[in-house]
Design a binder for these strands. Structure first.
Lengths: 109, 109
DNA sequence: GCTTACCGTAAGCAGTGACTTACCATCCTC
DNA sequence: GAGGATGGTAAGTCACTGCTTACGGTAAGC
């Protein structure tokens, strides 16, 4: 878990691969055909996604099938859900405070 | 909006600044004091976060106050909520399908 | 008005990382 | 077992980007 999930999803190509796996589990070669990058590039992206806990892989005969990891996706969802609650609370609090100017003499607010 | 929100949150420092703004709106200089990077670096990160729609800024006399943008945070949350639903459905479907081997003669599945 | 504080931007640099080709291992097919 | 298919890894290149210092511009304080 050296990669943070959000770092893993920061790259556009990796995000595209990730979203593609949302539709259906896929083999590496099939994914590579769907994107304008080489197969090794896809392999490397999958490695990062796997390291971040966002996907899991499974051997299927000759091929290796990648699919989303519900735990990882759920964790990210939970993160943003909580973040949303905090943001909402903070914003509500800010809205209730009438547009006061934070002067220097109010620094101890 | 040249920056995708997830791209903006991909960088650790930027993520830290973002999460710091979760606690309270802050001026650029105050943020810079809280992180081991220079003030211009913080300024650049805030620019990216703002471009991604994750924060908004407001002039307050001499200072410039940054805070979270509820719309942007909500959009990311909604994205992952929907993604979670899809992932769950896909995973459930995969679970219902007993571990069949995707042979070549089953390609037309 | 002059000085100080705050902050955005420009320029330059170094590290990272995304990508490619080349190679090797494993598995299935005949 | 030979050949083909699939995919992970190594090595190398190149663009990007995160960081710094330097500078300019605006607002507040004396």
């Amino acid at each position: 878990m050296t990669y943070h999930p959000l770092t893993a999803l920061g790259d556009p190509t990796r995000r595209a691969i990730f979203e593609r796996l949302l539709e259906s589990p896929s083999a590496v070669g099939d994914l590579a055909k769907a994107f304008p990058v080489s197969r090794p590039a896809v392999s490397q992206h999958l490695k990062v996604l796997k390291d971040a806990g966002l996907v899991i892989d499974r051997q299927d005969g000759n091929r290796r099938i990648y699919q989303l990891n519900p735990d990882g996706v759920g964790a990210v969802r939970a993160y943003f859900d909580e973040l949303w609650d905090q943001a909402l609370a903070a914003f509500k609090q800010a809205a209730e405070t009438p547009n006061q100017r934070r002067q220097h003499d109010r620094a101890g607010d």
